[in-house]
Amino acid sequence: MPSPHSPNQNQLLAALTPAEFEPLAALLERVPLALGEVLYEPGGQLQHAYFPTTAIVSLHYVMASGASAESVGVGNEGVVGIALFTGGNTTPSSAVVQTAGHAYRLERSKLLQEFNRAGLMQRLLLRYTQALITQMMQAAACNRHHSIEQQLCRWLLLTLDRLPSNELVMTQELVASMLGVRREGITEAAGKLQRAGLISYRRGHIAVLDRAGLETHACECYAVVKKELSRLLPDVRSGQDIAATVQ
């Protein structure tokens, strides 16, 4: 089991072999991430990559009108800052902490140095990037074709997958901002799920009471994302295992 604060709480870092992880160990800096903290501004030069352990970071696109919507969330399964190794160095979206917690950050030159070694870390980061693109594409399709209730179920399930408990500290206003819908729509959808006994909501706390029921109410988008994450980033116990699968 990982310690209360350990890089192994991040699945990408945990998948590295001891030989691959050792050069990074002294370079990783554990940092607290506060709710609402902005890690990246649109168009700004990225300085660090963040490997969340207990925090969740939301990548947002903000329109000229000020309206925004989440394109994808990143938790302990991934890394924030793919533009650093894909060559862009900047991004039109913002990165905002959705759930407070911790992450390990790595200075951009050190990340590039490790990526350019063309070892396991590079293969993991490329696999994760493909998984992230899948999530973005699926979210775009879901937001266009599925009901707010289905979108809320998908979002809740993906968030739960990144948390150690079944409770989220989240206001309806924030959820509405994540999905890019009106607060009234979230209120109505959450009310239906609560009456069905799937969730409970009180003063900014959402607790999932029946996960299986929530999955039943969700559209196929959650299952598609979950399957792709499992295919690209297998849940293994040692870096040796994933080293054999990520080729």
Results as ranks from 00 to 15, higher is better:
E215W: 00
G75D: 03
E77S: 13
Q47G: 15
H145R: 15
E228T: 13
H102A: 04
G75I: 01
Q138N: 12
L152I: 05
I206P: 11
A207N: 08
R237K: 14
W155P: 00
G36Y: 04
E29N: 07
P23E: 11
T216L: 09
S177K: 14
L160H: 02
R231M: 10
Q9H: 11
L12D: 02
N166F: 01
L198A: 07
M170Q: 14
S165D: 14
Q45P: 03
H205V: 11
Y40K: 14
R123A: 02
L229C: 08
S3L: 12
T91I: 12
Q138L: 14
L132E: 11
G43C: 08
H5M: 12
V246M: 05
Q172V: 02
A118Y: 08
S230Y: 10
Y128Q: 04
V96D: 04
C221L: 07
C153R: 06
A141M: 07
D241R: 08
G191H: 03
P92A: 03
R182D: 15
S71C: 09
L233G: 07
A190R: 11
V31C: 00
Q138M: 15
K226L: 10
E107H: 12
V72I: 09
Q98A: 10
A34Y: 09
A189Y: 06
D161Q: 07
H145L: 15
H205E: 04
E215T: 06
A139K: 14
L174D: 09
L84T: 01
L124Y: 03
L193P: 05
D210C: 04
T245Q: 15
V97K: 03
P52A: 03
N10E: 01
C142M: 13
V72K: 00
G81E: 11
T53K: 07
Q130H: 10
L168A: 13
P4K: 01
E37T: 08
H217M: 14
L158H: 02
L126C: 05
Y104R: 00
D161H: 03
T86K: 09
V62Q: 04
T91E: 12
V181G: 04
Q247E: 14
G204P: 03
L33Y: 03
A69G: 05
G185R: 01
